[in-house]
Structures are given as C-alpha cells and as structure tokens.
C-alpha cells in the first residue's frame, strides 16, 4: 500500500478551508436575496398549495372548449397575423438606419455611434407589452397601437442583432472596392449588403416569430388581435370560449413557426 509521505492535517485544512470560505460567502449573499424576495412577495408554500385546487378547477372549467365559437375567431386571428406582419415589416425597414449608425465600422463618429447603441439598449429594456399599454393610453385602443408597439420592439431587436453581425464582417471586399475608387454608398451596396443580408433576413424572421406570439396577447392590454375576445371571455367568465381561443392561438403559433422555418430555407 502507498507509503508516500503523510500529508499534515494543517495542509488538509488549508486546502479545504479556502473552498469553504468561498462557499460560505456566496451562501450568505444568496440567502439574503432569497429572504428579501420571499418576504417581499409574501411567499408561502402553504398558500400556494391551498389555492392550487382553485387554479385547477378554473382550468377544469375550460374543458371542453366551445367549438362553435371558433367561427367567430377568424377575423381576430387574421388581425393578429396582420399586426405581426406589419410590425415586423416596418421594424425591419426602420432598423436599417439604426443598424448602420450602431455599427462601429460604418459609423466612425464616436458620439453618434454611442448614441445609437445607447438608444437601442434603452429601448430594449422595455417589453413589447408595455409599449402597447402606453400607446393604447396615448393613441387609443386598437390594433394600430399594437402594431406600433411591435414596430418599436422589432426595430431595436433586429438592429441590435444585425449591427453585431455587421461589426464582424470581413474587410477584404471593402478594401477591394476602395482600391478601385468606389465611394461610400457603393461600398455599402456592393461590399457590405451582400455580407449582411443573410443575417438581416434571418433575424427579421426570428423577430417575426416572436411577434406572432406577442400579438396573440396584445389584446389583453387593448391593442387588438385575438387577445381582445380572450380578454372579453375571461372578464365574462366564459372559460370555454377562452380555451377555444387559446387552442387556436396554439395552432396559429405552431403553423407560423413551421411556415417561418420553410421561408428561412427559401430566403437564407
């Protein structure tokens, strides 16, 4: 059996002590965050368990879905799709100047660059539904507010992703055009656009998929689409209508995801 020199207990203590101290520090911080949070939200396992039956009985009331109601859902469903399409489309257009301004290899002016990046990051912190709620209050109820909210969100998200790809393009083609005396616009058209187009298209489609999901709930804040009848059904406790709406929403989201994947194959 091994006869190597015996390790002193002191050394054992040292090796394992460092580890313990680190763990302890992390544990104290985490424990503090959890106690603070649990007290803040009035967390109580007892209450969660006690109320679960009422949650499930509520779900139970949704079965079976009211199939007949589905006929009345076609118009709001179409509106949901239209909101997402237009929001994504306008977003994809408005994003172009923002993308260029927020890429440090296109915009050489530091101040403009940081302003554009900053603007993007600020707008990104606010969720789409808040934009929708604000626009509903400011402009009025309806799909138009929902569409504008989605436009704002799409613009900044596509710009963020695309500007990052833009900053990573290769300089070879740019140099080549510079060498033959192309001007800035020509360089963008023939050296930048071809490199960035696939990423831009792909991100736009990705945002479109998110937007479909968002536009199904826009109605809950009064911004149009299938969420409007959902809101009404829930307010009137017509849970079987609500479950029908949720069901068609599911189908819509899955169908659009599938279509978007196919479209990606064609376009990208």
């Amino acid at each position: 059996m091994p006869q190597g020199k015996k390790v002193k207990a002191q050394k054992v203590a040292r090796v394992f002590w460092v580890d313990r101290l680190k763990k302890l520090g992390a544990l104290v911080i985490i424990a503090f965050i959890y106690i603070w949070s649990a007290r803040g939200v009035g967390f109580s396992l007892l209450e969660i368990i006690r109320e679960l039956p009422s949650f499930f009985s509520l779900l139970g009331e949704m079965i079976p879905p009211n199939w007949a109601y589905s006929r009345r859902l076609i118009a709001p469903l179409v509106e949901t799709i239209q909101i997402a399409i237009l929001g994504s489309f306008f977003g994809a257009i408005l994003t172009i100047p923002l993308t260029l301004l927020a890429a440090n290899n296109v915009t050489r002016n530091k101040y403009i660059y940081f302003f554009a990046k900053g603007l993007m990051n600020i707008f990104r912190t606010i969720p789409e539904l808040l934009y929708a709620a604000i626009l509903v209050a400011g402009i009025g109820l309806g799909a138009f507010s929902g569409m504008l909210a989605i436009t704002i969100f799409s613009t900044v998200v596509i710009a963020k992703l695309t500007s990052e790809s833009l900053e990573a393009i290769s300089y070879g083609p740019l140099e080549a055009l510079q060498a033959v005396g192309g001007n800035k616009l020509q360089m963008i058209r023939y050296a930048v656009v071809p490199q960035i187009l696939p990423a831009y298209t792909s991100y736009s489609l990705y945002v479109f998929e998110i937007n479909i999901r968002v536009s199904t709930v826009l109605g809950l804040v009064g911004a149009g689409g299938i969420g409007v009848p959902l809101q009404t059904s829930l307010n009137l406790f017509r849970y079987q209508n609500a479950s029908m709406i949720i069901l068609v929403t599911f189908i819509l989201v899955m169908a659009i995801d599938y279509a978007s994947t196919k479209l990606r194959e064609v376009l990208v």
């Binding site: 109320e51 509520l58 709930v217 989201v253 899955m254």
Partner: peptide, 25 residues
C-alpha cells in the same frame, strides 16, 4: 413554452387573487 405568460398570469390572479404571488406562479 407556447403558453403565454400573461394568460397564466390572468388565471393565477383569478385563483390566487391579485398580488405578487400570482406573478410568481
């Protein structure tokens, strides 16, 4: 994953009453 958070929120508000616990759930 496809079930929107906000709708879950409405259900939990309906069964747990308004307040942060519904949001947590």
């Amino acid at each position: 994953r496809t079930f929107p958070e906000l709708i879950l929120g409405i259900f939990f508000v309906a069964s747990y009453g308004p307040g942060p616990l519904a949001g947590v759930m």
